[in-house]
Amino acid sequence: MKPARFAYFQPDSVDEAVACLRENGGEARVLAGGQSLLVLMNRRQIRPTALVDLKRVRGLDYLVRDGEGLRIGALTRHIDIENADDPQIRTAFGVLPESARLIGHLPIRTRGTFGGSIAYADPRAEWCLLAVLLDAEVVVVSEDGSRTVPAKDFFTGAHQSAARWDEIVAEVRFPHPAPNAALVEFGIQQGDLPVVAASAAVDLDARGRIASARIALGGVADRPVRANGAEKAAVGSVPDGRLLDHLAQLASKELDPPADPRTDGHDRKELATVLVARALRASIARGATAGTGATPRTGATPGTSATAGTGRQADHQKAEDR
């Protein structure tokens, strides 16, 4: 099929882009790679009256350290994150380049953008999940100026966000290093979005006990979610295998996943339990390998684990857009 007729704009700046949105009164869509948007338009599932293409806008393509944190411009492509060679980024935010490899296939990673994926707000997407896990902040811009929205508040439903119709996602900020963060996922077919994904970031204290734990899941609700009960239960405990399995069970008990044509809610809860346990083990193993935590008592093999135990060795997601 072909899309319905639409007007097409190629602004040269953010100011011009947001002016185009305002002029089209909520019927325009932003094109920032198009790996999701154009598919929906070709199927006529959405029929915007105008497209505002950001490809000529300069200054939104970057991946830079900001003190201890990291800033990613909206037009940064998945492949640029995957190939990031800054050793500080690799050390402090290694989960990002590792997870980029899970996104779709190479052509998608080459064209799709980080900000587009965030704006599209798919509840299974890796970038959305990691934004919630790592307490990221989303910067959106309109003719009225810019504002910052915590990731936990930005995603409001499946393909829905706190961004208004006249706002553009400009940047995502990760305020704190996450050297131990890990992401695992399960998908039915290579290149698809995962059925369920789980991520964890565990820090141990000098005694080898859990000082803090963050756990987030995708594909189990209409947005990425944190497992707050399991996070609280983890603190102060020795991270042995029994504890991690218990935390995974706690995390899944908090869930009421929706069914879809491929899986029912029970299947997703089972997957969530398995993947949370794997993500926790991977995070603790990473800390041990980097020397930032005590030797794990989980039986996990230290190493980079973005794809560990996913049921396949690479690629996922369809990337981008909004």
Score class of each variant (00 low, 15 high):
3 P>G: 15
4 A>H: 13
7 A>P: 00
8 Y>A: 14
13 S>F: 09
14 V>S: 15
15 D>T: 10
21 L>W: 10
22 R>W: 08
25 G>F: 10
31 L>Q: 13
31 L>S: 14
31 L>N: 13
38 L>Y: 10
40 L>C: 06
43 R>V: 09
43 R>S: 08
46 I>G: 09
48 P>C: 09
54 L>T: 07
55 K>A: 12
55 K>W: 08
59 G>M: 12
61 D>N: 14
61 D>K: 15
62 Y>D: 07
63 L>M: 07
68 E>V: 03
69 G>V: 02
70 L>Q: 08
70 L>Y: 09
72 I>W: 05
73 G>T: 04
73 G>S: 11
78 H>G: 02
82 E>G: 04
85 D>H: 10
86 D>P: 09
87 P>F: 10
89 I>K: 15
90 R>W: 03
93 F>G: 11
96 L>Y: 13
96 L>H: 13
97 P>H: 09
108 I>Q: 08
109 R>K: 03
115 G>M: 06
117 S>P: 00
118 I>T: 11
118 I>F: 07
119 A>Q: 03
122 D>E: 08
126 E>M: 02
128 C>H: 04
128 C>F: 02
130 L>K: 04
134 L>W: 03
139 V>C: 06
140 V>T: 14
143 E>I: 08
144 D>Q: 15
145 G>P: 06
150 P>Y: 12
153 D>E: 07
159 H>Q: 14
160 Q>R: 15
163 A>E: 02
165 W>M: 04
170 A>D: 01
171 E>P: 05
178 A>D: 00
185 E>I: 01
191 G>E: 05
200 A>P: 00
202 V>H: 13
205 D>H: 09
210 I>C: 07
214 R>Y: 01
215 I>D: 03
217 L>S: 08
217 L>N: 07
217 L>H: 10
218 G>P: 08
220 V>T: 00
222 D>N: 06
223 R>K: 09
228 N>C: 00
230 A>M: 00
231 E>M: 11
233 A>P: 10
234 A>F: 01
242 R>Y: 10
243 L>Q: 08
244 L>P: 07
251 A>G: 07
253 K>T: 01
257 P>A: 13
262 R>F: 08
268 R>P: 06
270 E>M: 05
271 L>N: 10
271 L>S: 09
273 T>P: 04
273 T>A: 15
276 V>K: 13
279 A>S: 13
282 A>N: 15
289 T>V: 05
294 A>L: 01
295 T>W: 02
296 P>W: 10
298 T>V: 06
299 G>F: 04
300 A>E: 03
303 G>D: 01
305 S>K: 02
312 R>A: 01
312 R>P: 00
313 Q>W: 06
316 H>P: 04
316 H>E: 07
318 K>L: 05
